[in-house]
Structure formats: C-alpha cells, structure tokens
Design a protein around this nucleic acid. Structure first.
Lengths: 156, 156
DNA sequence: TATTGTTATACTCTATAACTATA
DNA sequence: TATAGTTATAGAGTATAACAATA
C-alpha cells in the first residue's frame, strides 16, 4: 500500500540470523521445540502404517485395558470424547478395533482390539522402541531417565 | 503373548483406573503431557489479553529483531509462512504491529512493533516470568535448568 | 439429575499447492 | 529460476454445546 516507513528509522532490516534471545530459555518454548522434534521422528516411522500418534496411544491403552469405555480412554489420554468418536470410527473401519455394548452399563461401549489391531500395535511398539533408542543415543541412558523424572510433576 | 480372543467374553469391562503402563515412560508422551500443562498455565495468564502463545512468540521475536521479514520469523519459530500471514493480519488489525515495504528487497515486508505492541509485550513478559517462577517452584532452580539443558539437542 | 456416546459448530494449526510481484 | 507474500483447501486438533438413551 504505502511505501512510507512508519515508526522510526530502519536500523537493521534483515540480520543474517534471527536472535531468539530469552525465548530459548523459556521452559515452554524448549518443550514445544523438543516435542516437535520427537513427534516428527516418530510420525515418520509410523507413516507407512498411516497411524497418527494419537491413534497409537488409543490402540495401546485399549490393548492394556480391554473392555474399556470410550469416556475412560478420553479422560486417560486427555482427548476430547467428541474427538475420540471420529478416531474410533476410523480405527473400526480399518478393522483394528471393535466397539461392543457393555452389559453392565448399556450406555457405554466396551472397546477391544481385533487380532489385526494387536498385530499392528506390536509393529508400532517395535518402531517406538527404535525411536526411543535414538533418543537414548542423543541423551545417554541417564539423560533420558532424567527427563522423564523431571517432567513427572506436569503429568496432570 | 497368549490371547484367547476375548471379543465376546468380557473379562474386565471397566476397571477403576486406566493403566497407562509403558506409555508414561515414553519420552514423547511425557513431553506432550508436560507441554499441555505448561501451555494451559501460560494461556490462562494471557487470556485477559486475548493473546495466543504463538502470537506472543511473534511479538517477542519482532521486538528483538526489528525490521525482520516475514519469512525469517516463520522459519525461526517454525510457523508455516502461510499461517503467519493470518496471524500478522490479526496483530496489525489490533494495532500491535506494522508491516512496511523493505527498500532493500521490495518483495519482503519489514516488521516492527507499534508502541502499543511493545507495551503489551512488556506485560506479557511479566506474566511469563510469573509462570516460569511457578515452574521453578515445582522443579527447583536446578531442575528447571536441567530440563532446558537436556532438551537442547532437540531444538532443531 | 447425571453420564455415555453422538452430532454439530467454530476456531486453531499443519501441510500443501498455486498465484503475483519481485529478484 | 527462485523467493516473499498471499490465497485457498484439506485434514487434524481444541473447545463447546446440545441431544437421545440410559443410569
């Protein structure tokens, strides 16, 4: 629009590198960047199986807690239960998981993995182990354990 | 793994608590939950000012690097440049930031905070400091420093 | 009345692709 | 040709609200 340079003079239009200054020292920002790194790595490993990290966590928790109701999965993983409905539709369409009416409480659906779901989960857990190994290589065994321990107060 | 396919028979419909087992020991999951905790805390502090964490990081980086081009901001903060356009529209509408044509390269826009933008950023930085203090209270000064140090290899 | 699963809406964010104006 | 800003679209994800069936 207007070519006029507002405010004050332009001392340094575009430096070679961007100064992030204190931003890198803010815990939340460091956490976000680290999470982006880890998620990118693990997502790439899961890509051939067309499984998101959220889907992986659902398959895992249902496998460990067979017969679990949707609302329990949602609250355990901090996924909105309305969102979970769509996720389960997808997993059920793919034949990885089944919903069945609970006899104890006819409002709720009991969730179970199918044999195909268990097979896929087993593969995903192998890929997750390789991913974790890469993290351990970068941090050392103690460093990785330290992170888990330090983040414990924030696990809700 | 032995599994009598328990699709019809219901061995344990809904236990009292959901077992997350190894999920809590996966680095990425621990990171995600911790980030949710921190973001929830900081977002609540920013809520009265109607500023998202992404907007905060843009205001901060432009303040430190006046005259920065959009593409530089986008790559420094790992925000898609298409997404940044909408974010800057919003910040400009609110009078917190201005785009002006760069004379060096007429394709790019030089970004500057307005006085109102600098005022707001100053307030946000105070809130961020209180947030960081809460983290330090929970982790100890060393614990907080340890996290930043341990996550350094993943800051891209 | 409260909860479970569901549908719906709005907004944010990620990931692309394509277009324009400059370089 | 390549880059900067922009527009557009599709798909996740977040945040709510409301509704029917059931408790």
């Amino acid at each position: 629009m207007d070519d006029e340079v507002a405010l004050d003079a332009e001392p340094d239009p575009t430096p070679g590198t961007v100064d992030l200054a204190a931003l890198s020292q803010m815990t939340g920002y460091a956490l976000r960047r680290a999470q982006m790194w880890l998620f990118r790595d693990l997502k790439a490993r899961f890509k051939a199986h067309d499984i998101s990290l959220a889907q992986f966590s659902v398959l895992y928790v249902v496998d460990i807690n067979p017969g679990l109701a949707q609302a329990r999965v949602a609250e355990a993983l901090a996924i909105e239960r309305a969102r979970l409905v769509l996720m389960l539709d997808r997993l059920e369409e793919r034949g990885l998981l089944v919903r069945s009416r609970s006899k104890a409480d006819r409002r709720s659906h009991a969730l179970h993995l199918t044999p195909a779901g268990r097979d896929l989960l087993s593969t995903l857990l192998d890929l997750q182990a390789e991913h974790e190994k890469r993290i351990t290589t970068l941090l050392g065994r103690d460093g990785r354990a330290d992170i888990i321990r330090l983040l414990a107060p924030f696990q809700d």
